[in-house]
Design a protein around this nucleic acid. Structure first.
Lengths: 123, 123
DNA sequence: ATATGTGTTTAATATATATTAAACCTAAAT
DNA sequence: ATTTAGGTTTAATATATATTAAACACATAT
């Protein structure tokens, strides 16, 4: 299960410090500049004193850290910009589907995804 | 097709004025107070001079006007708070599904919804 | 004529969210 | 002993989004 109990800040700091062990480019300052935020802000965000940055920055952080962006976005209380764009355009049509699967397990949803994928191949 | 070319403001004003024909409670002022926004704001929003109000207010407007909330939310560039809550919790699990169906027609999505609904009955 | 109801406009704020510069305090390297 | 690199703290802003009070103009009812 992808059920990480840690906060946004804890995940980012833990992961970054781990990478820093073998790569000095993962110091707080260098990492912050690479992402496009100030060291100040990253410091506070990693200690959960500030709220996480906006969605786009969170995605960049996840990419740089090599972790799943959706997990980090969820911790940051953001919806992925790509998903958001799709939903903004088609929420009437997608609402039913999302509500319908919202009480299903991840496994059950995977089964559905696979079924749809297969049916798509046959066309 | 639910493809209304009108803006948020146009839809709200048109619908409200229609209701007002037979019901004085749909004057701009009374309606605004009922929704919980100022007449000023509603006036500007209905003429698209201000951006639409926040999602919760848009939902209330749709309910009062008796129109589909998702359509109005889309025009207002908001995601339905209910959907948003689901996505914030489970976007890792739902992302694949949403991306997969995002290029399908509304009809095709309906077919999938029906299939899932049936399979749910058998359990 | 005036009070009442309608929508509009002017002129600002309010509120939340996102964000920073600069000074600071270490510990390690020179 | 001092430069360097690390992270922290103070003290504010910046930015976007959401929102309003009060005065106005016009029509209709009294």
């Amino acid at each position: 299960m992808t059920d990480d109990k840690r906060t946004f800040g804890q995940i980012v700091r833990d992961t970054r410090l781990n990478l820093r062990k073998t790569n000095a480019d993962f110091s707080l300052r260098k990492f912050a500049f690479r992402i496009g935020i100030s060291p100040t802000y990253l410091s506070k965000a990693e200690t959960d004193e500030f709220q996480p940055p906006r969605a786009e920055k969170v995605v960049r952080i996840a990419e740089e850290l090599g972790i799943n962006k959706f997990v980090l976005l969820t911790k940051a209380n953001h919806i992925d910009p790509g998903l958001k764009a799709i939903l903004l355009k088609r929420q009437s049509e997608l609402a039913e589907l999302i509500l319908l699967v919202s009480d299903m397990s991840a496994d059950q949803i995977s089964v559905i995804v696979e079924a749809i994928r297969k049916s798509k191949e046959d066309s």
